[in-house]
């Protein structure tokens, strides 16, 4: 047992970190898509997650049907919100990156204040299905059952996303639009529709993350900001457009936010900053090399 003692406080945070990281990945994947395909920095992305989170808080009552219902409603609502963002980002509104950022930030403010008005200014409690409310024993440690299931489901989502981007026709069109939007247009596929589709898909991902992740990053007035910040950091760390990179970065950020805090509480505020600085300092040149040769 003497071997177990030093590990004991760290296994649970490490598992938590995996759950947290996968949640951030599912949330950030939408941002990567928007950013990579349409060059859109969607500052309302955190609000899309918050829509899912509030849906979960409002609809979950401890049963399985309510979870399915919340997932359906949350995903549909966030998809619609994503499509709305795409609709408002017309040619006029999206003429420069600045107007894009201003428009999406305005939408984030409006959406956030509408959500607070509808659900109140307090953090909402979320009830997970009763069957998952307890804890299970993992390798001798008690761990929340919901999080364990979440890890499996989120990993599944990540896998499906990878397949969708790599193997389906829609995914191919999206990747083609990243490489050469004009050529895709010549092939008879409207880049506008690809953009709308990508923003809607990003909304769906954020909504799903919001519903499933509500017990981990719960819905509240700060949720949108927190999720946006984490997603941004993850997307930047992941190499601005690479799904695999984003996944690795999200898992790393998850560990920093949980295991890092457990190991070095006093250094915790600086860890994210330091990680970002370190990775970017090393990678910046490589990233730029691909981009500058235009």
């Amino acid at each position: 047992m003497a071997v177990d003692i030093p590990i004991d406080p760290y296994v649970v945070p490490a598992l938590d970190g995996v759950a947290y990281g996968l949640l951030v990945f599912v949330a950030a994947a939408g941002l990567v898509l928007c950013f990579g395909v349409a060059g859109i920095l969607n500052l309302a992305h955190g609000t899309l997650y918050a829509i899912g989170g509030y849906t979960a808080a409002a609809l979950l009552d401890g049963g399985w049907p309510s979870l399915l219902l919340a997932l359906a409603v949350g995903v549909i609502a966030a998809t619609a919100a994503g499509a709305l963002v795409a609709g408002l980002l017309t040619r006029v509104a999206a003429r420069t990156h600045l107007t894009q950022a201003l428009l999406t930030f305005g939408l984030a403010l409006v959406g956030g204040s509408l959500l607070v008005r509808a659900f109140g200014p307090d953090d909402q409690p979320v009830r997970v299905p009763a069957a998952l409310d307890g804890s299970v024993v993992v390798a001798g440690h008690r761990y929340a059952a919901y999080r364990l299931v979440f890890i499996v489901v989120a990993a599944l989502l990540a896998g499906l996303l990878h397949l969708a981007v790599r193997r389906t026709r829609a995914g191919m069109l999206v990747r083609a639009a990243v490489d050469d939007a004009e050529m895709v247009a010549v092939l008879g596929v409207s880049p506008t529709w690809i953009r709308v589709g990508v923003l809607a898909a990003a909304g769906a991902l954020a909504g799903a993350a919001g519903v499933l992740g509500a017990p981990i990053i719960g819905p509240g007035p700060d949720t949108a900001d927190v999720v946006l910040l984490l997603s941004l950091v993850v997307v930047v760390l992941g190499g601005l457009g690479s799904m695999t990179g984003t996944l690795l970065a999200a898992l790393a950020v998850g560990q920093i936010q949980t295991l890092g805090v457990a190991l070095a509480p006093s250094a915790a505020p600086f860890l994210l900053f330091a990680a970002m600085a370190a990775v970017l300092a090393v990678r910046a040149r490589g990233l730029a090399a691909t981009r500058r040769t235009t």
């Binding site: 060059g39 920095l41 990156h97 910040l229 941004l232 950091v233 300092a281 910046a284 981009r291």
Partner: peptide
């Protein structure tokens, strides 16, 4: 080093992350 090679919307993204992290840091320190 974070911004010197980046241009356009990438700069927006990186600077936003830096600014937000600075606020988080200020709140926790």
């Amino acid at each position: 080093p974070l911004v010197v090679h980046a241009r356009g919307v990438v700069v927006l993204m990186i600077t936003l992350a830096v600014g937000e992290l600075a606020v988080v840091l200020v709140g926790r320190w």
